[in-house]
Design a protein around this nucleic acid. Structure first.
Lengths: 249, 249
DNA sequence: GAAATAAATGCGGTTTTTTGCAATATTTTA
DNA sequence: TAAAATATTGCAAAAAACCGCATTTATTTC
């Protein structure tokens, strides 16, 4: 069998089944695995496929892209995200909500983190899924088109089964007097349960939302363990929260 | 044997078998390999064939196998998707797997369809979520990075709770004798349960995967109600399946 | 038709490509 | 963390390609 012929066959298989294994190709074509590896190597440098440990994957398989369109407050959210990821350690069980800030956090995760992330937010799950080493658990239920999260009794009861080390919530409004408030009934339910199911509650928000109010009550401010904004923690806006015993990053 | 005669023979062989070997041509025509090499060289500069180490390949071999093939496969999948969506009616409860064909189907859904889609495939869910009128239910569980689906006992048991009107599976290999086969144990489990939980099973596949085999058995061919490929249903490749009682679209 | 010229072919020696193997390292998995 | 699977690296043997040249064969020219 000619080399080019072999490579054409490999490509064909990869495009057909999205994945090929070195050892099966080796036995199918009766050449050594070394030869297969070299073929895969050549095909991968020309971008025909993606070489992985044990074989290769089709290129089209891996391209799930989530549009990065929300430029609004992007850099602030990146600052928040970078502060947030420092709280996550190897082996942790992490519960997260949805929202753009959480997405930023997902993108800021260090590439060699070994932790388990649980979320009902589809965009967040997509980000976690693309991370090389973290495990992802999706909360199943009906998907709300508005919040792009799973919403409902199933999701709620699943969260109850967990006792996470830490929980990250992107919040819509925070006020010393009224605590966390929001505007979506279903999302509020989830957030409440997430707070109850976690040892430590971390709230992420841009400073604009501090001292604002939304119609539905989520929880009192004292349930928050850590508050992260883009501001320096000396900022006067944050003083009341520090005085209330919340760690501010 | 004249040079022209020789080259004509080489071309004939190349077009017939898609490949020729220098050494066999040499012995067949009783000329030195150098001569063959020079012939191949000339034929390749005029574009009649592709010279490779050890012989030559027909043009169609290289040309069809990668650059065009990918686009063809894509448009094939669009054809399949367009056939598939006609099966979905308002009010239906639809179970779907993952894979590129299913994604194409999701993109081909008519904009005013009111149906409920259940899936564990994250890319599929992302597509469904972006559709204006359909409801989406995610099967929750741990996400497999390879298949980008939720995999495990939870997902499995949730499917058991459903009795869907119709189930769409993108399949990796189909064979009259062995039925549907695949290469990922967890995905196989899910597919089996999905088949059991649906009134009607629709299999989507490009024709190349027909009469191919993968290591793990999913189900017998007779479990399939409808088979959709990019081919016309009169195509002889599909006849055995029609005769087995499968509706072919 | 014969000589001159050009083209084609084969051959020996050298270089390059391909391949498999063995030893070592790395990654994966249990 | 240890064992198994897969990768990497260097190397050597075999196959194929290349190069130059001599020999043969075909074509042109006088």
């Amino acid at each position: 069998m000619l080399k080019k012929e072999r490579q054409a066959y490999i490509l064909h298989q990869v495009n057909l089944h999205n994945k090929v294994l070195s050892n099966s190709l080796s036995s199918e074509m009766e050449v050594s695995e070394d030869t297969i590896r070299r073929d895969l190597q050549e095909l991968s440098v020309t971008g025909k496929l993606i070489k992985v440990h044990g074989g290769a994957l089709s290129h089209s398989f891996n391209k799930i892209s989530y549009p990065i369109n929300d430029i609004y407050a992007q850099s602030d959210k990146k600052i928040i995200a970078n502060k947030a990821v420092t709280l996550i350690k190897d082996g942790m069980f992490v519960l997260t909500g949805g929202g753009t800030t959480i997405i930023e956090m997902a993108r800021a995760l260090p590439p060699v983190l070994h932790a388990t992330f649980v979320s009902g937010s589809i965009p967040a799950v997509v980000e976690y899924m693309n991370h090389p080493t973290i495990d992802v658990i999706v909360l199943g239920d009906k998907v709300s088109k508005l919040s792009k999260m799973t919403i409902g009794a199933d999701a709620l009861s699943k969260i109850k089964n967990f006792k996470a080390d830490i929980c990250f919530l992107g919040i819509n409004a925070l006020d010393m007097e009224h605590g966390i408030t929001d505007n979506d009934w279903d999302v509020v339910q989830l957030k409440q349960q997430m707070i109850m199911s976690s040892q430590k509650v971390v709230c992420l928000t841009i400073s604009e939302k501090i001292n604002t109010l939304q119609p539905i009550h989520v929880c009192a401010a004292n349930k928050i363990d850590i508050l992260i904004t883009e501001l320096d923690h000396h900022d006067p806006l944050l003083q009341p929260y520090m005085e209330a015993g919340i760690t501010v990053l």
